[in-house]
Amino acid sequence: MNLAHSTKHNREVAAKTRRPLLPMHVLWAVAMIAPFLLLTVIGMIAPVILLVAQSVSGPHGFTLDYIQSLANPTYRLAAWNSIVLSFASASVSLVTGGVVAFIAFGSGAQSRLGALVTSFSAVAANFAGVPLAFAFISTLGMFGLLTRVLRTAGIDIYAMGFSLYSISGLTLVYTYFLTPLMIILITPAIRAISQDWLAAAKSLGANPAQRLQLVVLPILAPSLISAFILLFGSAFSGYATAYALTSGNIVLLTTEIGNVLTGDVASAPQTGAALSVGMIVVMAVLVWISRWFGQRTRRWK
C-alpha cells in the first residue's frame, strides 16, 4: 500500500517538475507540426466553413430557405432511403461479420482460419466503389451471368421483383464490403474476451446460452454498438458504389449532392451545401456516440 502510494506520488512530482521544452525543441516542434495543421485548415476546416456559410447565404444575404428546402419530398425520400439502406446493410453486416469473427477468433478457434479471415477481410473491405459495382453487375445485373444462368433454369429473379439497382440490391452490394469491415472492427473485442471469464461462468453454473446472454453479449455490447454505428456511417456516406451501380438514378443523400454538384438537377448549389452540412452533422453525432461507447469498453480493461 505504502509502496504503491509513494510511486504514484513520485510520478505526480515528476509530472509537475517536468523540464520545460528547450527553445530549440519548440522550434523543431513548430516546424514539424505547423505544416500539417495548416493543411488541415485549408483542406478540411475551410471547406466545411465555406459549406456552412454557403448553405445560409442567398442572393439577398442571410437566409434559412435552403435549410428549410431540405424538408421537401425529394430530400425526405433521399434521407429515408439513405437511412434504410444504411440500417439494413449495417444490420446484416453486423450479424454476419460478428458471427464470422466469433467463429474465427472465439474460444477454441483454429489460428489458420483466423489468419485466412484476417487477410480476406483486409482485401474485401477495400474492394468497394466502381470495381465492386461492376463485379455485381456482371453477376446479378439485368444481364449478369448468374441472372442469365438462373433464367435458363427457369428462375427469373427480375420478374420476381429483385433488382440490383434498388435499395435491396444496394444492400446486397454494401454488405460485401461492410461485412469484412465488421470483422476488422469487432475482432479485437472478441479476442479481448478472456477465456477465464468463460471458464468462471462455466464453474459458476452457467450453461452455453446463459454464457452468451449474461457474459459474452453484455461485455461485447459497447463494441457492437460502436461497430454498428461505424458501419451505418460508412454506408450512409458512401457514394461511389451507388453512383456506379445506378448512375445517380437512385435517390440517396449522397447521390443527390452529387447531382447538384454535377449540374444534373436544376438545384441551387446552396441546396447541395445544405445537404452536405446536414450529412456532416449526422456523421459527427454518430462518431461521437461511437467513441463514447468505445471508451466504455476501454475503461474495463
Binding site: W197, L204, N207, P218, I219
Partner: peptide
C-alpha cells in the same frame, strides 16, 4: 459431468470478475 454442473467454486489467478457487473 460438465463444469457447470459440478458445483465447484473456482477463484482464478486474475480473478476473472465480469467487467460489466
Amino acid at each position: 459431468v460438465t463444469a457447470e454442473e459440478r458445483r465447484l467454486g473456482v477463484v482464478f489467478q486474475n480473478y476473472a470478475l465480469f467487467p460489466h457487473l
